[in-house]
């Protein structure tokens, strides 16, 4: 029976989780919004007198027990929502200098549990076909030129999405490859969970929370 893959696939029925909230992956605390108070020794200055900055946080748990994770993974910011991409949204991925975790997490959104294709999200092989560029990783000298050329190649208005702490603030390993203001959407996390990525992409496409 196993070799009849088509029938075997049908026999497994639908594996995709219907409810977006199910993506929250019960038990996932890091990365999620953290709350607390008091002075802590933060290696990336994500916690200061001004509060907690999700874009700097690497979720290293050094602030425990003064600060604790809430499990709330809605840790992203988008400048505005654009409904023009409601039906389909093509992204081109640029790895400026990642550890590999952001790369695998954005690929995870296409696993059957999430199946971002059904939401109209696709990865393209060339920036010419893309609606937005997703930048991951820290600044690296040799990737600056390919990154610049990829952004130029995206049809205007090119939207740039910053994915992960390294892309947004440089994290603990370096500096960010683009200025914070360049990013249309900023997705926090080290790395951001698939739920956070999908929620951020859905919001920038002005789609409802239930995925419609």
């Amino acid at each position: 029976m196993t070799k009849y893959w088509f029938l075997n696939g049908i026999r497994r029925r639908i594996l995709t989780e219907k409810d977006l909230s199910a993506y929250k992956n019960p038990g996932l605390l890091w990365p999620s919004r953290i709350e607390g108070h008091g002075e802590v020794s933060c290696p990336v200055d994500a916690i200061s007198s001004g509060g907690w900055n999700s874009e700097k946080c690497i979720f290293c748990r050094r602030c425990i027990p003064s600060y604790t994770p809430t499990g709330d993974q809605d840790i992203y910011e988008t400048e505005k929502s654009d409904p023009v991409f409601r039906k389909s949204f093509h992204i081109f991925l640029v790895d400026s200098g990642t550890c590999g975790a952001c790369n695998t997490e954005i690929n995870s959104i296409f696993a059957p549990q999430y199946d971002a294709n059904r939401l109209g999200i696709f990865v393209t092989n060339t920036p010419r076909d893309a609606d937005a560029i997703v930048v991951m990783g820290v600044y690296t000298e040799k990737m600056q030129e390919p990154l610049k050329r990829a952004i130029e190649a995206v049809p205007k208005p090119a939207m740039v999405i910053g994915l992960g702490t390294c892309a947004l603030s440089g994290g603990i390993l370096g500096k960010n490859p683009l200025d914070r203001e360049v990013y249309f959407t900023r997705i926090s996390g080290c790395p951001p969970s698939p739920y956070t990525i999908i929620r951020a992409l859905e919001e920038m496409r002005n789609r409802r929370r239930d995925g419609r």
């Binding site: 893959w5 696939g9 594996l15 996932l28 059957p112 790395p191």
Partner: peptide, 30 residues
Amino acid sequence: FAVPSKRLSYLSEKVTRLISRTSGHRYFFG
């Protein structure tokens, strides 16, 4: 080979969730 590829991705995500539940992070960070 789409069916086995997707079924293996499904299992990979299941293991990642197990990792998350045992260590608190999907990639063991921290």
